[in-house]
Amino acid sequence: MSADWPLGVARHLLDSVDSTNAHAARLARGLSGPAWIVAAEQTAGKGRRGRDWRSPRGNFYGTYVMRPTERAEVVALRSFAAALALREACVALTGLPGAFALKWPNDVLVNGGKLAGILLESAGQGGGVSHLAIGIGVNLIGAPEPDAVEPGALRPVSLLAETGKRIEPSVFLDTLAPAYARWEAVFTTQGFAPLRAEWLAHAARLGEPITARSGSHTREGMFETVDAQGALVLMTAAGRVAIPAAEVFF
């Protein structure tokens, strides 16, 4: 374990699991504090909208699980903390700050291709959240074939192929966990504003035309910003619109 490992955060290392988010849900009630759950292999990993997530050994599959105290809509903003920590870890391990960008709502890109994704899952009642699982998958050494993703989606890429850097999952965890702890501390003490500003500083296609799809509804417009609630703001032909949830296509 790294000397920089965040104080009070547990660490669960598994060889194989159905998914780290599912395991986090099983462990959540008995946890005394936040924890990282990392597996060498997932047998039933999931991406956004329940899509299968290919999980070969050598890539990074991890979940940060915690018991938040904020309202559900505030808890969800931690996806930005996770994205910032992911980018910070990638830069630290490769020394290539210009290669990495952030794609709304929760992807990390390298050289324009999709390197990593984030999946938030939670449980609770009313406006409260009993636990939050932040699932993170990073293509360290391998990526899905282009025909495995939907038409128009960004090409999947690996860190190894794009940068020539072979990073072990354990090394990636030792860099990611302290980075996330720093952004978690900023979020809990200063709120979303500093995360929003830093995220926008590294946003892919900011000021450019993009497409946002939510169900059967498609909107096209100029990517203006992310608002104080984390929503995507587009300037469309019909005017400015804030989109709280969608998939973005370039």
Rank of each mutant, 00 (worst) to 15 (best):
residue 43 T to I: 07
residue 116 A to I: 02
residue 100 F to R: 03
residue 140 L to C: 09
residue 208 E to N: 04
residue 172 F to Y: 13
residue 119 L to R: 01
residue 189 T to V: 06
residue 136 I to P: 03
residue 174 D to P: 00
residue 200 L to F: 01
residue 242 A to V: 06
residue 171 V to P: 00
residue 225 T to G: 03
residue 172 F to R: 05
residue 160 L to F: 06
residue 134 I to V: 14
residue 27 L to Y: 02
residue 49 R to N: 05
residue 115 L to P: 04
residue 152 G to F: 04
residue 161 A to N: 10
residue 31 L to S: 13
residue 182 R to H: 11
residue 188 T to Q: 08
residue 12 H to W: 04
residue 130 S to T: 07
residue 10 A to Q: 14
residue 165 K to A: 15
residue 174 D to K: 02
residue 112 G to Q: 11
residue 188 T to Y: 03
residue 19 S to D: 12
residue 59 N to T: 06
residue 27 L to F: 01
residue 52 D to C: 01
residue 41 E to Q: 15
residue 107 D to R: 04
residue 155 R to E: 15
residue 116 A to F: 02
residue 129 V to Y: 03
residue 229 Q to H: 06
residue 43 T to C: 08
residue 74 V to G: 06
residue 105 P to W: 00
residue 40 A to N: 11
residue 64 Y to G: 04
residue 21 N to C: 09
residue 209 P to A: 13
residue 117 G to D: 04
residue 174 D to G: 12
residue 90 C to H: 08
residue 93 L to V: 08
residue 191 G to V: 07
residue 127 G to N: 05
residue 155 R to L: 14
residue 63 T to P: 04
residue 115 L to I: 08
residue 17 V to Y: 01
residue 78 R to A: 13
residue 3 A to C: 04
residue 21 N to Y: 07
residue 50 G to A: 08
residue 34 P to L: 11
residue 213 R to C: 11
residue 30 G to V: 04
residue 80 F to K: 03
residue 169 P to F: 04
residue 191 G to I: 06
residue 212 A to N: 05
residue 104 W to S: 02
